[in-house]
Simulated assay, not measured.
Amino acid sequence: MQLAFWLNLLFSIVEFIGGWFTNSLAIMSDALHDFGDALAIGMAWRLERHAKKEADRKFSYGYRRFSLLGAFINAVILIVGSVIILSQALPRLWSPEPVHAEGMFGLALLGVAVNGFAAWRLRNDKTQNARVLAWHLYEDLLGWVAVLVASIVMLIKSMPILDPLLSVLITLWILYNVLRHFKQTANLFLQGVPDSVSLDDIETELKKIAGVVDCHHTHLWSLDGEHHVLTTHLVVGEQTDKQERQQIKKAVRALMPHWQITHSTIEFEWASDDCSMADREQGKC
């Protein structure tokens, strides 16, 4: 992330200068977008480092949710930046201005190289924060490919409307994907069940374990989109002894990696126990 931050910051400065020189709104818009990306990546870099701190008495689950906070803020930055870009690009559709196609072509080549390399560097990071950052970079990469194609067309034939049209299309595509990721991030931030996991499937598999009669009060949430937390109550037979409970715990732990669950808390109950939690779930209380 550190390298991606410096690449985006330096390149956004180059873009501002190049956009002014070429009179290209598409490039100026992307310069604003890249500058926002640089700030977002810089913040995410710091939060990601903070997220790797070990658990302590203040944050007993560790600091991984700081990474999720970075993803949430990054999505907001992208949404605001997209609205600003649209407000500038739409009026130019009715009154396009001439652009410097040669300069656009050169900047587009540089943009493809910089954003492509930065996206490649983040390819193995699977946190929600990294996914949002990767979208920053993939969208920029696609945008520069489009600018490259448009500049080639304008080198052959003067079509200044391609510049604002390209800016609008890129921004709308970015906005669509960011809103989709924003929804996922907000769901995780509000401790919703991750989209990749089904609570019903988990309970079904838990009930298949030998010795488990039933399970209820099952809760699942995610620390950062990659590391999940599970709590559940398992009902066992009246004659279940300590050794059998240990076997059940071992079977549960064996299932956890499949759902990317890194923290699990299990409470055993006997069928004759009166569990107020189960009553609440069934609407009895």
Results as ranks from 00 to 15, higher is better:
129 N>H: 13
47 L>A: 08
275 C>I: 11
164 P>K: 09
197 V>Y: 08
81 G>E: 03
178 V>D: 04
105 F>P: 08
62 G>K: 11
219 H>E: 07
155 L>I: 08
103 G>M: 03
60 S>V: 10
246 Q>N: 15
224 D>W: 02
250 K>F: 03
33 H>S: 04
118 A>E: 12
182 F>D: 01
217 H>C: 01
25 L>M: 13
161 I>G: 06
252 V>D: 03
77 I>S: 10
242 K>C: 01
19 G>V: 05
139 E>L: 11
144 W>F: 10
35 F>Q: 04
120 W>T: 11
281 E>C: 05
142 L>I: 13
53 K>M: 06
206 L>P: 04
83 V>F: 14
65 R>P: 02
232 T>W: 00
138 Y>P: 09
284 K>Q: 15
111 G>V: 05
154 M>I: 12
277 M>W: 08
200 D>C: 01
225 G>A: 00
12 S>Y: 07
229 V>F: 02
230 L>N: 02
86 L>K: 12
171 T>S: 08
171 T>F: 08
119 A>V: 14
154 M>K: 06
159 M>V: 14
228 H>C: 00
117 F>T: 15
282 Q>H: 15
33 H>V: 03
38 A>H: 03
268 F>I: 06
93 L>S: 07
265 T>E: 09
90 L>C: 02
27 I>N: 01
60 S>I: 12
104 M>H: 11
139 E>Y: 07
194 P>G: 12
119 A>D: 09
186 A>W: 08
145 V>N: 05
243 Q>N: 11
100 H>D: 14
167 S>V: 13
41 I>F: 05
246 Q>L: 11
256 M>D: 05
203 E>I: 05
112 V>M: 10
59 F>V: 04
107 L>T: 05
147 V>G: 03
249 K>R: 15
143 G>S: 10
264 S>R: 09
50 H>G: 05
255 L>R: 07
257 P>W: 15
101 A>E: 14
141 L>I: 13
143 G>I: 11
16 F>P: 01
165 L>N: 04
276 S>Y: 04
59 F>N: 09
28 M>A: 03
188 L>M: 15
146 A>I: 07
25 L>I: 15
174 I>D: 07
241 D>M: 03
201 D>V: 07
